[in-house]
Write a protein that binds this DNA or RNA. Structure first.
Length: 921
RNA sequence: GCCUUGGUGGUGAAAUGGUAGACACGAGGGACUUAAAAUCCCUUGGGCAGCAAUGUCCGUACCGGUUCGAGUCCGGUCCGAGGCACCA
């Protein structure tokens, strides 16, 4: 009987939809396992063949874990709020909800064809009010919390207020934005509005003014990770820096925990490293320099990681945006400084980046006193110092910092070397090595000693103190857009007030147009009666990462309307055991999610410190484009191999007209009218196309749609092939060449169960050779799946099937476990064969076959290895190996060694010492 | 510039320090067939010797080291990919 994948696949997909065998058990005594895919943004283009790569990998793992006896949670949903749907809405006037729903339906249809084992009853959409109720809820929790540095966790704002009443701002050690200190009395005397403004400086979700990435073309602010090279990630529009009051999340309060938490995660080193760099912890010192502007004395705190170089300070630099600029600008220099500031302000972020190498700056007119040497150095202003990092002011040591060096050279400032023998005539000496000189009490010490010594010294003398700084900034949390979660905040007499929890969700209002208003307000300002309790509601909405930050928790308990997740349910599922998705979320979603989870953990709503235990990054699938070569100025196309003889023009050709790089000439002529009458210069009667690996995109005619593959080869073949292409983590081009190989394998496997047209398996007991084939495969699959080496598992499967064909094996005792082994990879064909083998219950409820090593071990002889007259260890070696050969292998071994016979390898530990003699038992 | 990766046939790729190139594609040859498709069998890293079975040497980007033994470990160089980039 033919392997009719179409019939088989539609039959089982219908069955799974009806019987829902992938629902996790409630109140299960089984161990849990939570496998999660990064949910997709449903774009209008639909899925291409690259999207399912990670989904297939996670599906294989989920099915495998189920067979291994785990209670598996494997859900799917949609990250449905976002810019593209809204941009489309602005152009067409169509409600983003409509396009989003259409796209979701298409995604669902495409995913269903691949046979994923999701529990679709748990589907979530971030744009669904029942879901975003909990996004808003979490925001309110952040609004009413502050970060207590002593307890190192989030606490209710009420505690803060109580502390302020007792001892003013000094009574609390909490993460906060800059503000003037106040006493308890002052606090009590504050008006409601003043109090509320002050509390904003402490809330974890807070409103604050800061320099933001403003994208005029999109009409919204963007987070740092949404900007690449000064352009918006979506759309590629220029982004400029602008001071604005925005909702923000105090992610920076969690920087230390976010960094330290990485150590215990099973993520790749490169990804952890990316997060470490993004968080950017540096241990340094804050030192106060007294500055003099005319007669006025102003203390300025700087941050440095190299206090040991303080004797080499020859000038100081302030960021142009620093508040100190005004205070430290002398009357004479005011005009020059103002001009410089105006220049800086005009630049877009992109210009700033592209002009990275040009050095600019202006002298402020003031001088700073070096607290160690009492020397007077000039204070400069330059945009190479960032306002947002450290204190926005630095001490410049041109001899040992390349940026200070460039600045000193440009403006002819002195350079004092501090390390014996270092040459600073051409460039600065940044390395932390050598012996200190010109440095007072540090002279003669190595740089490493000096770094620590100087820190201690500065602290002891009260000149400064140690400080840990992070690069991680607070996340800008508002977007001036329509298609996002509304903030549950209204403005009562100008005071930001939370909408009560029991009034959530605050649903998105209908509006007639999705553009900003004529006065530049966000689209929500167009809504009629966008008020609460008679007061105006916030008109910006939340960014994309809001809805994706805690979705993994919601999957545990998606229909609960009392809580984000029930405490007991959360206790059972804990967190995600395996998370699969792309690296592009390294510094966005994966940071925000960890932050969000830690916050919920602090409040007791999530019971795990980290959301994602193990993370696997699937590679991207690139397109493989094909080219034809037109002989310039003619109507002729020349085949790849003969192209050098002509002057040619390379033209992308639709890959659907090409098979194994051979052009279907007739199809090409019919492709477009202008190719109707073209002629071909062939080689060996065929037209060979050129090829290149490029991004999969419509314009390059190289998009492969999974639906087409399912039509011609079936979902099982697609699944196997995507995994057979290479390691999951690796990026690779899609190349339909080779798909025949896995398709052939499935057909061969199918045929093992048939004698001509009839299903026929034998009940005979299996032979040793047959058992060996089976158990080798079980062993291989078990160890390979755990390390995501799916491609080698499939290879092992192909070998096993070839072996069984050679053995003419049709025994049930071998074939039945093989079906179970194949199920994670090719579930449809496996279910069908399982049913034919007489099982009424689906293969989902089967058990992974047990590996028996005895069946796979070669028949070896045991040798005893002795030296110094004593037998020290025994070695198993194949019988075919003679005594001399064994001796040659063993002689000289001092460590762990392995012995090889044709196939099996035996491991022995060799006791150190010289081998004198080999005794064969 | 810094960090993280990777470099193996015509192609995708395998190899806990132990026969490098499994498995698959492609290519070449053959069987079946009137023919094609499908299926099956053989060859397929390179050089040299041989009618042949086979033998033999060289080969995992380059140079060096550790080891009885290195694609794998260590040091250096070159090239590619990804991330960060005035973060003091």
């Amino acid at each position: 009987m033919e392997y009719d994948f179409k019939k088989i696949e539609s039959k089982w997909q219908a069955r799974w939809a009806k019987e829902k065998p992938f629902k996790p058990e409630e109140n299960s005594s089984k161990p849990k396992y939570y496998v999660l895919d990064m949910f997709p943004y449903p774009s209008g283009a639909g899925l291409h063949v690259g999207h399912p790569l990670g989904y297939i990998a996670s599906d294989i793992y989920s099915r495998y874990k189920r067979l291994k006896g785990f209670n598996v949670l494997h859900p799917m949903g949609y990250d449905a709020f976002g810019l593209p749907a809204e941009q489309y809405a602005i152009q067409t006037g169509q409600h983003p909800e409509k396009t989003t729903t259409d796209n979701i339906n298409r995604y669902r249809q495409q995913m269903d064809r691949i046979g994923f084992s999701y529990d679709w009853d748990r589907e979530i959409r971030t744009c669904d009010p029942g879901y975003y109720k909990w996004t808003q809820w979490a925001f309110l929790k952040m609004f009413s919390s502050y970060y207590d540095n002593k307890a190192d966790k989030a606490m209710p704002v009420e505690n803060l207020i109580a502390a302020f009443e007792k001892g003013g701002s000094a009574a609390v050690d909490a993460a906060h934005s800059d503000h003037k200190p106040f006493t308890a009395e002052e606090w009590k005397a504050f008006s409601e509005k003043e109090k509320s403004r002050m509390l904003m400086n402490y809330r974890i979700a807070y409103q604050g003014e800061s320099t933001v990435n403003w994208c005029p073309a999109l009409g919204t602010v963007l987070a740092n990770d949404e900007v690449k090279d000064g352009l918006s990630e979506r759309g590629g529009f220029p982004v400029e820096q602008k001071k604005m009051t925005q909702w923000q999340l105090r992610v920076s309060a969690y920087a230390g925990r976010l960094l330290d938490g990485l150590d215990n995660l099973d993520w790749t080193d490169s990804l952890k490293e990316m997060q470490r760099n993004w968080i950017g912890r540096s241990y340094g010192t804050e030192v106060v320099f007294n500055c003099i502007n005319g007669k006025e004395e102003i203390p300025v705190t700087i941050f440095t990681t190299r206090v040991d170089t303080i004797f080499g300070v020859t000038f100081m630099v302030l960021a142009p945006e620093s508040e100190l600029v005004e205070k430290l600008t002398s009357d004479q220099q005011k005009a020059a400084v103002d001009e410089y500031l105006a220049q800086c302000k005009k630049k877009t972020e992109r210009e700033r980046i592209s002009e990275t190498k040009s050095v600019t700056g202006v002298f402020s007119g003031s001088y700073a006193i070096n607290p160690l040497t009492n020397e007077k150095v000039p204070v400069w202003i330059s945009e190479y110092v960032l306002a947002g990092y450290g204190t926005g002011a630095i001490m410049a040591v041109p001899a040992h910092d390349s940026r200070d060096y460039a600045f000193a050279k440009k403006f002819n400032l002195p350079i004092i070397p501090l390390i014996e023998g270092c040459d600073v005539s051409e460039q600065s000496f940044d390395a932390k090595e050598g012996i200190m000189c010109n440095s007072g009490f540090l002279n003669g010490k190595t740089v490493k000693e000096a770094i620590e010594f100087a820190k201690d010294y500065v602290e002891e003398k009260g000149l400064g103190k140690r400080k840990v700084n992070y690069r991680l900034r607070d996340a800008i949390f508002s977007r001036q857009r329509y298609w996002g979660e509304p903030f549950p905040i209204y403005y009562k007499d100008g005071i930001a007030t939370p909408v009560p929890e029991d009034k959530l969700p605050l649903t998105l209002p209908e509006i007639d147009q999705y553009k900003p208003t004529e006065t530049g307000e966000p689209p929500l300002a167009r809504a009629k009666d966008w008020t609460f309790d008679g007061y105006p509601l916030e008109t910006s909405t939340m960014p994309g990462f809001a809805g994706s930050s805690a979705y993994y928790l919601r999957y545990m308990d998606p229909h609960n309307d009392k809580a984000l997740v029930d405490a007991d349910v959360d206790k059972y599922w804990q967190n995600v055991d395996l998370y699969i998705g792309g690296t592009e979320h390294a510094t966005g979603h994966l940071i925000y999610s960890r932050f969000w989870n830690k916050f919920l953990f602090d409040l007791g709503y999530s019971c795990a410190q980290e959301p994602f235990k193990k993370l696997v990054n699937q590679g991207m699938i690139q397109g493989r484009s094909n080219f034809v070569y037109r002989v310039v100025g003619t109507n002729k196309f020349v085949s790849l191999g003969l192209r050098d003889q002509y002057e040619t023009q390379e033209i992308h050709v639709d890959i659907n007209l090409v098979r194994n790089d051979r052009l279907d000439i007739e199809a090409f002529r019919n492709w477009r009218p202008e190719f109707k009458d073209v002629e071909f210069i062939l080689e060996n009667g065929e037209y060979i196309c050129g090829w290149a690996v490029e991004k999969m995109s419509k314009s390059m005619f190289n998009v492969v749609n999974p639906d087409n593959i399912c039509d011609t080869y079936g979902a099982d073949t697609l699944r196997l092939y995507e995994m057979f292409l290479g390691p999951v983590e690796q990026s690779k081009p899609w190349d339909t060449k080779g798909i025949d190989g896995v398709n052939r394998f499935l057909k061969k496997f199918w045929k093992l169960f048939f004698d001509g047209e009839n299903f026929s398996v034998s009940d005979e007991a299996p032979s040793a050779a047959e058992l060996k084939v089976l158990h080798k495969l079980i062993g291989k699959e078990q160890s390979d799946i755990e390390s995501f080496s799916y491609n080698t598992t499939i290879s092992a499967f192909m070998i096993a099937v070839n072996d069984l064909i050679a053995l003419k094996c049709n025994k049930k005792a071998i074939l039945e476990p093989m079906v179970v082994l194949l199920c994670p990879f090719a579930p449809h064909i496996s279910e069908e064969l399982w049913e034919m083998l007489g099982h009424t219950e689906g293969i989902t409820y089967a058990t992974f076959p047990e590996y028996v090593e005895a069946y796979t071990v070669e028949n070896n002889a045991t040798y005893a290895v002795s030296f110094n007259g004593k037998t020290r260890f025994t070695v198993e070696l194949p019988k075919s190996m003679g005594k001399d050969e064994v001796e040659a292998h063993v002689r000289g071994l001092e460590q762990t060694a392995k012995y090889v016979d044709g196939k099996s390898i035996v491991k022995v530990i060799v006791v150190p010492g010289k081998i004198v003699n080999i005794v064969i038992k």
